[in-house]
Design a protein around this nucleic acid. Structure first.
Length: 302
DNA sequence: TAATCGTGGGT
DNA sequence: TACCCAAGATT
């Protein structure tokens, strides 16, 4: 018993890792709005939409305004989608505002105004993918599902696999790896999903991990291997933003949000020096339903 | 499936 | 400065 051969790495005790991380989380969790008691499934759903690729600190003020104005899905469903896009402000990726509005309409129409708790029902909503569906089911309803985000993948890659970075996301592999760590009880499981994400967000960060502060440093495979450099497949690098179509779309959207009237074509053409690129960006916004052609120009969707 | 989609702060 | 990164989803 308790014999560990020399030069043999013992398998990570998943019960110890999850219990340790949960205890750490209970003592160290940031006080975030969506973690307050009784925050509600709608608030959690809205927060998850906003947190898709947008940092926590930029989300919080927009989230609080949003929920004060639209405390239920039906409240949001009752206003034009353009109002959602305007309230989205500069959170980025404004299609998410359109999708959140569409999801609110679907929740109101097909679920009696109650955010569904079933994974398949959640996945059927516009703008909800695998991560968000699981996050809502686990965090709003306490269901026992593995929830895997970019933080979770990084912590598992380091602590369990001993690599400096995760390989590109792979749904099946990621869910299986997280499933092996997940505590049996639904309550502990929901806690652990949040705890491992939190560790990745504040301690086991991408650029400068704070290993001295890590509660599972003694179980970390990456540390045990003396922090080998990552040699696997790199994720595709983001294209440069400066001068991109995304930048031009952003300029047009800022104009549409700020003008509480239609914006003329001539006004749009002053926003960027390259007319062809402006045309291309504007056309893509129309395709996305973010800009609506009107008789005298363009508006947000009514 | 790989490319696309905003914005701003950190290193 | 230039690049990286952020609770992803869609096509």
């Amino acid at each position: 018993m308790n014999v560990t051969p020399a030069n043999h790495t013992p398998p990570v005790n998943s019960a110890t890792v999850s219990a340790t991380l949960n205890a750490w989380f209970l003592a160290n969790a940031r006080d975030l709005p969506w973690r307050r008691d009784g925050f509600g499934a709608w608030g959690i759903l809205v927060s998850e939409f906003m947190l898709q690729q947008t940092p926590v600190n930029r989300v919080i003020p927009r989230l609080e305004e949003w929920l004060a104005r639209w405390p239920t899905p039906a409240d949001l469903a009752a206003v034009p989608p353009g109002e959602a896009v305007r309230a989205w402000s500069s959170l980025g990726y404004p299609r998410r505002a359109l999708w959140l509005h569409a999801a609110a309409v679907q929740i109101t129409e097909f679920h009696g105004g109650v955010v569904p708790s079933d994974l398949d029902d959640l996945l059927a909503l516009t703008g909800i993918g695998d991560y968000t569906a699981r996050a809502v089911a686990a965090f709003a309803y306490g269901h026992r599902h593995p929830v895997v985000d970019t933080n979770t993948r990084r912590v598992i890659a380091r602590a369990i696999a001993g690599a400096g970075e995760p390989a590109p996301p792979s749904r099946g592999r990621d869910l299986e790896a997280m499933g092996r760590l997940l505590p049996e009880s639904a309550h502990e499981a929901a806690l652990f999903n949040a705890a491992i994400m939190e560790l990745g967000a504040v301690v086991c960060t991408s650029r400068s991990p704070q290993c001295d502060l890590c509660p599972i440093r003694n179980a970390c495979a990456w540390r045990a291997a003396d922090y080998p450099e990552y040699t696997g497949i790199r994720k595709t690098v983001q294209k440069k933003f400066e001068g991109s179509d995304r930048q031009v779309r952003g300029l047009i959207m800022a104009e549409l949000r700020g003008a509480h009237r239609s914006v003329t074509d001539a006004e749009i053409m002053t926003l960027w020096p390259d007319p062809a690129q402006l045309r291309r960006a504007l056309a893509s916004l129309v395709t996305d339903g973010l800009a609506i052609p009107a008789a005298d120009g363009y508006t947000l969707p009514e």
